[in-house]
Design a protein around this nucleic acid. Structure first.
Length: 466
RNA sequence: GGCGCGAUAGCAAAGCGGUUAUGCGUCGGAUUGCAAAUCCGUUGAGCCCGGUUCGACUCCGGGUCGCGCCUCCA
């Protein structure tokens, strides 16, 4: 029984789909004017895991992950760089796809871009104007009339009157009310623009999601997700737009991933305390990053630090060390795992609001039993490994070759060839009972960050430590 | 100021009103030429003050501290 924490009600709820067996899930993606940072990866991976798990359980999932490819920041950046806005966004979309692919983030069912949905955006704005929920201003902008939507604030639990009193809201003469937000923005000369009933302009920030969600999922969604920082104003405004336009409920379950922190505070563009995904991947294996990001619950903040990345690496090493001898074992088909106690526990954990941490704990239990079985019952060990790999696939981890993973590390370290040749020399020394030389070699390798393990059959395995 | 969230052992991080989370680390044992890996055992928790209860880390109230949103942000 799937349970999801719903931001709207601030509690876990049993999930009930709009259409039996089907789920529509819309997740806010990024505005593409720069490289993605690890905070973006956190949210993308969280929902990638949700999507993988839902599909694994037989749900027919329509996963929509949008791209906002037109907005003020994009225009500003394109002016700064002297690069056409669509060339700029293409460049960063390509980079984003590259990052996602490395991190094992599967492509969504649909990846709509705001600029491809200008007509539907104009349609919604028009209908909001017609219904009195929006109004064109004298400068050519069209604004949403916040006081026309009586449920405004229900998602973020804001009191509308207090919002009005807030000192930080910019008072704009052109708006009827300072809380009103822009749906359609008149363009200045030279800016990218599309024609509309209100003149040349471009979409405001929030409206594109209302339009894309409607076109890709219909007027009602099962799940809508995004980073916690989008709860207000973005998702609040989406609700106001979509529900005022359609006249009925927009989203059944709102999910928000907690922010990634650096030194205890949120990683963000404005604080300039972010690390891009590509920077981090220069130092750490992509699976380490992914493992780190799913090793705590998606609603708990995670602290990004070297120590925690190293801990993630060590945590995965336990898995790969166990899997080293079972490279040929294939993941077990989920349909034949229904009676596995491990799998039942795993599914139970994931059904409980996608508790990846508990799911990993189940997998660690499985690893221990694999290692124990390896000593006495290889068939059992292989069976358990098949199950372990099947669960790992649901989380999108343990997809590398174990030995390659364990031997991966900084490129400036000792070469694999050098390691192999020293190991060969050590094996000979051992045969000659020259243990002094054998130990010397082991110490030298250790100093170079290489740990060796002698197997019973006389061979020696090695891995890098970071 | 308004609205939320959190505080767990050396570190990371979950569930749970009474019964081992889990990973890393420590220590001891098995194993090993010695190691490493592995297994077994060990170590160790629940911010403070009240309350409810036969019993609270878990529920309720009040503090303290940290964080998020209220402004662009995944």
């Amino acid at each position: 029984m799937l349970q999801i924490y719903n931001t709207l009600t601030r509690q876990k709820e049993v999930f009930k789909p709009i259409h039996p067996g089907k789920i529509s899930m819309y997740v806010c993606g990024i505005t593409v004017y720069d490289y993605c940072h690890i905070g973006h990866a956190r949210t993308s991976i969280a929902f990638d895991v949700v999507a993988r798990f839902l599909r694994s359980q037989g749900w027919d999932l329509n996963y929509v992950h949008n791209i906002t490819d037109i907005d003020d920041k994009i225009i500003r950046r394109s002016n700064e760089l002297g690069e056409k806005f669509d060339a700029l966004t293409k460049r960063f979309i390509d980079a984003m796809h590259d990052d996602e692919q490395k991190l094992g983030i599967l492509p969504p069912t649909v990846e709509p871009r705001a600029t491809e949905f200008i007509e539907p955006i104009i349609e919604i704005v028009k209908s909001l104007v017609d219904k009195g929920h929006a109004y064109p201003a004298t400068n050519g902008d069209v604004y949403y009339r916040v006081n026309s939507f009586k449920e405004y604030g229900k998602l973020s639990n804001k009191n509308v009157d207090e919002l009005m009193a807030g000192a930080r809201i910019e008072v704009d003469e052109i708006k009827e009310d300072p809380r009103d937000f822009v749906l359609w923005k008149a363009s200045k000369a030279g800016e990218p623009s599309w024609s509309s009933p209100w003149g040349a302009g471009r979409p405001g920030w929030h409206i594109e999601c209302s339009a894309m969600a409607k076109k890709c999922c219909g007027e009602q969604l099962d799940i809508h997700g995004g980073g916690a920082d989008l709860q207000f104003p973005h998702h609040e405004n989406e609700i106001a737009q979509s529900e005022a336009a359609s006249g009925h409920n927009y989203v059944n379950y709102w999910m928000h991933a907690a922010p990634l922190r650096v030194d205890g505070v949120k990683m963000s563009k404005s604080l300039n305390n972010f690390f891009t995904i590509r920077d981090v991947l220069e130092k750490y294996h992509p699976e380490v990053v992914r493992f780190f990001l799913i090793s705590s619950h998606y609603r708990s903040p995670i602290n990004y630090s070297e120590d925690n990345l190293i801990e993630a690496r060590v945590g995965i090493e336990r898995f790969y060390t166990a899997l080293r001898d079972y490279v040929s074992v294939q993941p077990t088909d989920l349909s034949s795992m229904q009676n596995s106690e491990y799998y039942k526990s795993f599914v139970e954990a994931m059904n409980d609001d996608f508790n990846t941490r508990v799911a990993l704990a189940v997998m660690y239990d499985l690893v221990r039993d694999v290692n124990t079985a390896a000593k006495s019952d290889i068939q059992l060990a292989e069976k358990l490994v098949g199950e372990l790999k099947a669960m790992a696939a649901i989380l999108g981890i343990l997809q590398s070759n174990p030995t390659e993973f364990l031997q991966s590390g900084s490129s400036d370290g000792i070469s694999a060839e050098r390691v192999e040749s020293l190991i060969a020399e050590r094996i000979q020394s051992k045969k000659d009972k020259n243990y002094a030389r054998a130990d010397e070699i082991r110490k030298a390798l250790l100093a170079a960050g290489v740990v060796i393990e002698d197997a019973k059959d006389g061979t020696t395995k090695w891995r890098r430590e970071i």
